[in-house]
Write a protein that binds this DNA or RNA. Structure first.
Lengths: 351, 351
DNA sequence: CCTAGTTGCCGGAACGATCCGGCAAAACGA
DNA sequence: TCGTTTTGCCGGATCGTTCCGGCAACTAGG
């Protein structure tokens, strides 16, 4: 005992536990993690001793020996961060990881710019990955198992995918608008190169062609400031006065547009229908409340984490894809001329 | 070499580097971390060899030897999570940690319910801690260095504190409202037992007493759904028709209230002034845009992380407190009858 | 030239958990 | 009863890094 880097108060090791239980350290280890052959009586004694001494395992030592880290990484492009969907997603991931006794380490693009960067994790969850993002390329280069929420566009693939059929739900939304009297629905989509963004635009284009109406589409950056979005919407209705409905794809778009048009004297919900591709408190706060797709952030995060652990622990094969079903909340912003919809009616599930 | 848990392809150790550079492992270690006595020529050779071999350190081994983890924890009560302030805060923490080559591990209340819970980190950042939160008590019990954004109320203290003078900025906001013609400003505050919440209510009470006006205050849970907030606001104006201004303390409160009153025909910005204690995209999206305090989430997170590293590395003493200055964005929602304020004027800094 | 101090580098012992292989004792089969 | 297997437990090596102590070689002072 020449030196101790830090003589920590609560430094009870597995050897202490073993001694307290009157067994060897190997037996204590086996008993605690249920690995070797240990009699029930001995196991019980070890567990009791561990509890009594307040033993908590030294993860660094375990990591070193087992060549694992006990953590998974979570990468969130900064541009996406300011929306409720992603906050919920994060909670889904962290809660699920906690159930597996894993930590979650946040990975951001900044710093770590070195070429051979590899985060100190066993696997990674990606949120809505954009193929061009250099950080994502770097993460793929690590060779770690990676699960992404939405597919990664381009030649390279992630180990696992959790995806939703956004085209389907947008089509449902468009049909709903048509049913409520909208003849010329417009779309404000996002410029991001993600599967979600493309699926939305494709669904809109397909629907317009099938319905034989001229598309009115504008693009805005995902995190565009509300005034910019409002400017775009106003320009669109000036340019094409026949527009009688808006779908805002990204978070906050529909709410911002609704506010602008309402303050211009347009009657939202009758003369002009509004729907959002992403639900959030903004769609609920709007007057009237805005019909929206619930993108199930928390469930998505949980599912991604679960899939990653399945991959790490051999319960799933690389290449697996899971579908996450969504919901549409129909609200007064798409009531139409026909009738009235209460503030938050029973949900109608898509698919 | 009996077995390797995982025979990883890129497993280049510091011994490989040392051999490549023709020195002993000790010298290689010293050279890379600049610790011992190494001649410049040798250091250079080692660094070159490390780069050539693509050496990246095994953090588990380092952690084991040095009794550190290379990570800090970040605790965010789930109820707070759905606001932009906290997302920015997270980025601030993670970016700053990356600059110190530290990881950030998210800590959530779920799971880990065991008594002797201790996260695998060197220190912890708390966001707006609530004294009653049992998780916070548990974290305090770990004995790890803890920095909190806003003071922790109650007998126990954190190792370091980053705080803002919210009372000051709310007073400025109230004075601004008065200046613009408001005689009976109402406050919708938050029920959370945080320093921020109390400071806000205290500042309002003090100002009302000094100005000799009757206070009109309501409380709502921090994450109250917008319809509930709107209901509260409508009840307040029905009850006290003299109210001519609202301050919504929490994120989204002011925007929700503004929407409700506007749709009731109240002219926001002249007949009724609106201000928010927290800036977000919702205050910008509102028509008219809403005057708000910028709570500097990103800067707060960065400052907390920096202070934590200062404490960890002995550059700061326990008990230190840092003040984070805020800003007020004056917007059209508080233009008043007198004149007109453009959508986003030059900022006016408080104190 | 001799001693004391400095510089540059190295061997080896930790850190705490895991797990391979071994070895008694107990259980089993005939 | 005597081999053979199974059970229960253990010693010791190992993961990759850090850092203490030591040891030559060199420098400086007198």
């Amino acid at each position: 005992m020449t030196r101790k880097p830090a003589p920590p108060a609560g430094a009870v090791t597995i050897i202490d536990v073993a001694q307290a239980a009157g067994v060897a350290k190997t037996t204590a280890s086996d008993a605690l993690r249920g690995h070797g052959r240990v009699s029930p009586a001995t196991r019980e004694a070890v567990v009791a001793a561990a509890a009594r001494l307040g033993f908590s395992i030294n993860r660094s030592a375990r990591s070193l020996r087992t060549a694992t880290t006990g953590a998974i990484g979570l990468y969130i492009p900064q541009v996406l961060a300011h929306t409720e969907h992603y906050m919920s997603f994060i909670y889904g991931v962290v809660n699920e990881a906690a159930a597996f006794d894993y930590d979650v380490t946040l990975i951001v693009a900044s710093g770590h710019a070195k070429h051979g960067y590899a985060p100190h994790v066993d696997g990674i969850v990606l949120i809505d990955p954009v193929a061009e993002d250099p950080m994502i390329q770097r993460l793929l280069d690590t060779g770690l198992p990676i699960v992404s929420s939405e597919r990664l566009l381009g030649p390279r693939q992630t180990t696992g995918v959790v995806w939703s059929n956004h085209a389907h739900y947008f089509t449902l939304l468009l049909e709903h608008l048509a049913e409520r009297g909208a003849r010329h629905p417009a779309l404000i989509a996002s410029t991001t190169h993600s599967e979600w963004s493309f699926a939305v635009q494709q669904a809109y284009a397909d629907w317009c062609r099938a319905a034989d109406v001229a598309p009115h589409q504008a693009l805005a950056p995902f995190a565009a400031p509300p005034p910019r979005l409002q400017e775009i919407a106003r320009a669109m209705v000036t340019d094409a006065p026949e527009i009688d409905a808006f779908i805002g794809a990204g978070d906050g778009v529909a709410a911002a547009v609704a506010q602008a048009l309402a303050s211009d004297g347009v009657r939202i919900g009758s003369r002009m229908l509004i729907a959002s591709g992403v639900d959030s408190s903004a769609t609920l706060a709007a007057q009237p409340p805005i019909t929206a797709i619930n993108t199930q952030g928390g469930e998505g995060g949980q599912l991604c984490a679960r899939l990653l652990f399945d991959l790490l622990q051999g319960r799933a094969e690389p290449g697996v894809e899971l579908e996450l079903p969504l919901e549409i909340y129909y609200r007064a912003s798409t009531a139409g001329n026909a009738g009235h919809i209460s503030s938050r009616p029973g949900r109608k599930r898509g698919s």
